[in-house]
Design a protein around this nucleic acid. Structure first.
Length: 483
RNA sequence: CGGGGCGUGGCGCAGCUUGGUAGCGCGCUUGACUGGGGGUCAAGAGGUCGGAGGUUCAAAUCCUCUCGCCCCGACCA
């Protein structure tokens, strides 16, 4: 029942259909997730945005620990000589590394890279820690920040400094390392789908797209509501590349010296951007309950016997919900009207709103309103915790279902380049096609359509010749225009 | 790094073509009345127009240089 939308309000957020980029920026700023900073390329994550990140981080951290990993912390700086040890790795990251050249007024003998990723520093430590097969596997994760000197800034999606976790493991066998790589891409998939409500496609990166220094890169790719793909997490099987470069050796059970097999995997604050672009609408954010800073916002209606009855009732409701383990916020600000608050909290994506006024106090009830559907339910106070929990579960499930339906209906099987081009110049989305695997043609397609191969689907067999070259296909590939 | 655009109270903008000493909306402050989908009225505060130089009696406006930001592309998570 949301018809009388105020024009002034609507103009604060550019409609998605008018200009998706502006819509995204407007939502991020108006919802107070982030703000520009005086530092070029760097953003400030504001308390509301950071609360969102903390919730997401905690859920992912629990999943990482549940799969046997422990957290540690390695230095922010990496000596140049260390970074240069793995050739492909340096080459891949060189253009975007920030260098520290001075300590105070003194020029350093060896400059220090501000980590763009930590393989080098971590692997150099692993080489000290690993001597025997008994020292393996090493299963370590780190939460931290990294710096990549990108040219362009977009909130959460591309900033010079960003927050992430990076897992680094070392194993005795190739099989174990491969198993780990797959296990972690699965952890990302589950986290994104179950906790963030973001459906993904899981697959393997092509040689062109894989991580610098990796033997094989797996990725989870999400489809944003403007039809562009966003890489939401990667897991790399590094083979023995880094073990050889950093000398991670051990003596096995047959008393032979072996190089270890390593993996690395990461997920960043970019997922917050994915969250906004997957679920947001023209009224602002929509947050999945599991990560929402507030599950429920209580709006007391200031009327009649407000101070004596309504506000105390609202406070009791707050206690009741908090005791039930929900994250609750009571918005008792006197300076705003209820209608203003409804819009404000919808804009900020709070999944459930509880309204309580004189009529509700009299009837010992509250009104629960869903952000996703705007459905209203009158609930007796005593039943509120249970009813809220049920609604939140339902919101979580239905947000994923809605997003999945969008992804599926925007995944287009194409059999020839004409069909491919037509989709790319229209609604875009994921294009699913048989692929010959020729790297040069991959570049050619990108130049013509700006679409890249997001991933190859490992579990699917080609159903015909390559859509582009007509040659025998080796893979089924997902193409898309990427963020 | 290539192409485009923008810098004017906290935010969003107008004014610039045709120079005359800055205005609107929102927000903010105080008070009163209000309050179930962004309330009403009244009284206020707040800007040397991104920066530097030049032209002129006079520059937000014209000229030169410079800095910053945003969007698209390329690169990336």
């Amino acid at each position: 029942m949301a018809k009388n939308r105020n024009d002034d309000f609507v103009t604060e957020i550019t409609p998605k259909s008018t200009d998706f980029s502006r819509w995204y920026t407007d939502v991020v700023r108006r919802a107070e997730l982030a703000d520009y900073s005086p530092v070029k390329g760097c953003m400030v994550i504001r308390p509301y945005g950071y609360a969102l990140w903390e919730n997401a981080r905690d859920l992912l951290d629990a999943r990482i620990k549940a799969t046997g990993h422990t957290n540690a912390y390695f230095p922010l700086f990496i000596p140049e000589s260390l970074l240069k040890k793995e050739a492909e790795h340096v080459e891949g990251f060189a253009p975007e590394v920030a260098w520290v050249t001075h300590g105070g007024d003194n020029e350093l003998e060896e400059r220090l890279a501000v980590r763009p990723t930590s393989e080098a520093i971590i692997c150099s430590m692993y080489s000290k820690w690993v001597q025997s097969w008994r020292d393996l596997p090493i299963l370590i994760n780190q939460w931290g920040n990294v710096v990549r000197w990108e040219k362009v800034t977009r909130f959460f999606l591309r900033t010079t400094e960003f927050l992430w976790q990076e897992g680094h493991t070392a194993h005795a066998t190739a099989e174990e390392a491969q198993e780990e790589t797959l296990k972690m891409i699965g952890v990302y998939r589950d986290f994104l789908e179950e906790d963030l409500g973001i459906p993904v496609v899981t697959g393997i990166k092509t040689e062109k797209e894989k991580f610098a220094g990796a033997a094989r890169t797996y990725a989870v790719e999400a489809l944003m509501s403007d039809g562009r793909a966003l890489q939401a997490g990667t897991s790399h099987n590094l083979g023995q590349n880094f073990a050889k470069a950093f000398d991670i050796q051990f003596e096995d059970q047959n008393q032979e010296i072996q190089y270890a097999w390593s993996t690395s995997w990461g997920m960043t604050t970019r997922t917050i951007g994915a969250l906004v672009m997957t679920h947001g609408d023209d009224n602002g954010l929509r947050l999945p309950p599991r990560v929402a800073p507030y599950h429920v916002v209580i709006v007391p209606i200031k009327a009649g016997n407000y101070e004596e009855e309504v506000l105390p009732a609202a406070r009791r409701l707050e206690d009741l919900l908090r005791t039930a383990g929900l994250r609750v916020h009571l918005d008792d600000r006197a300076e705003y009207t209820p209608g203003w608050k409804y819009n404000e909290w919808e804009m900020r994506g709070v999944p459930l709103r509880a309204e309580i006024g004189p009529r509700d106090v009299k009837n010992e009830q509250t009104v629960l309103v869903r952000r996703d559907t705007r459905d209203k339910t009158f609930v007796p106070i005593a039943h509120v915790p249970g009813a809220a929990a049920t609604l939140l579960d339902d919101i979580q499930t239905s947000m994923l279902a809605t997003a999945r339906q969008f992804m599926e209906s925007n995944t287009h099987p194409v059999e020839d380049f004409d069909a491919f081009s037509e989709v790319m110049s229209g609604t875009r989305g994921f294009l699913k096609a048989n692929w010959c695997g020729d790297r040069e043609l991959e570049v050619e397609i990108q130049q013509k359509t700006s679409a890249t191969i997001r991933c190859l689907l490992p579990d699917e067999e080609p159903t015909g010749p390559c859509f582009y070259s007509g040659k025998p296909a080796k893979h089924v590939a997902i193409f898309a225009k990427a963020y």
